[in-house]
């Protein structure tokens, strides 16, 4: 039995090393002045980090633009889904099946395919949907539907929305009041989880913004793309680590929140 466990720990150890090595290399490279020999030169050097924080306005502009391009679709998608949930909870529970089916389509119709199918339909047709920004926002809103649906739906189950609605009705509250003053505030964790997961997905998107926008939108990802194309150096490494840190923070936050929600559920069922 004990021997077996040793085998398992070896598997885990090897996995950790393999998974962490690329991250470490990128990190070390960022703190050097170059890496043309076995050891990186001038390690540790903070030259490029200083430059990143004090002399790279373009990078931070792009990060901000990325955030803007992510936040608007997330809001659109959330609002649409909350309104749908209102109808499902209050009047038409049967609608749930259809909404779920639709929301799961983006799992199969991934980024590239969805972007090009929207392009074929609307590009250059002169309609309101032909506007690239509207196109990008809409595709982004659609691509995150699986996360948004799951996040809200699970939370709705967890807070036992149906019972709340019935109780509120007995006490004389109107449907709209109950939903927006009682149910939605109780769903804030679900909304936050959905928003964070979606943010992680959109912030790292490159194909959609590239295909739909061409070179119109400068996001954090297109910035990294241009950097890698123009030259390969420790400076790029610092940008990459910075973008990674942003995504990682978001991912950790959503992971923690999800656990919190799960814990709450577990306590409730007790």
């Amino acid at each position: 039995m004990k021997q077996n466990k040793v085998g398992h720990y070896i598997v885990l150890g090897v996995t950790v090393v393999v998974m962490i090595v690329p991250v470490l290399f990128t990190l070390i490279y960022g703190f050097s002045n170059g890496w043309l020999d076995i050891l990186p030169s001038d390690f540790p050097s903070f030259t490029y980090w200083k430059e990143l924080f004090f002399d790279s306005p373009l990078f931070w502009q792009n990060v901000l633009r990325s955030i803007y391009l992510c936040v608007i679709p997330i809001i659109i998608s959330l609002v649409c889904m909350i309104l749908v949930m209102y109808t499902i909870v209050m009047h038409m529970p049967k609608l749930d099946g259809l909404i779920q089916t639709i929301s799961m389509i983006p799992y199969t119709l991934r980024g590239v395919v969805l972007a090009i199918s929207v392009l074929t339909l609307y590009a250059g047709k002169g309609t309101i949907f032909s506007d690239r920004t509207i196109m990008l926002f809409s595709v982004y809103s659609v691509i995150i539907l699986p996360f948004v649906y799951r996040g809200l739906r699970n939370n709705l189950y967890a807070i036992n929305a149906k019972q709340i609605v019935e109780a509120a009705e007995l006490l004389g509250a109107s449907g709209i009041y109950t939903f927006f003053r009682i149910i939605v505030p109780n769903m804030l964790t679900g909304i936050a989880v959905a928003a964070l997961l979606s943010f992680g997905l959109l912030f790292t998107d490159f194909p959609i913004v590239k295909l739909i926008g061409g070179n119109r939108y400068e996001t954090a990802q297109t910035f990294l793309w241009n950097q890698q194309r123009s030259g390969f150096g420790p400076k790029t490494s610092t940008y990459i680590i910075m973008v990674f840190l942003i995504i990682f923070t978001i991912a950790t936050a959503s992971y923690r929140l999800q656990h919190k929600v799960e814990k709450q559920d577990a306590e409730k069922t007790k």
């Binding site: 090595v21 690329p22 991250v23 290399f25 793309w225 992971y255």
Partner: peptide, 20 residues
């Protein structure tokens, strides 16, 4: 650790592999 590597996909990963 899995969380770290999962979020290191895309550009960072390509960069790191070129480096290595």
């Amino acid at each position: 650790i899995m969380n770290i590597s999962q979020n290191f996909a895309g550009f960072p990963l390509a960069f790191a592999f070129i480096l290595m």
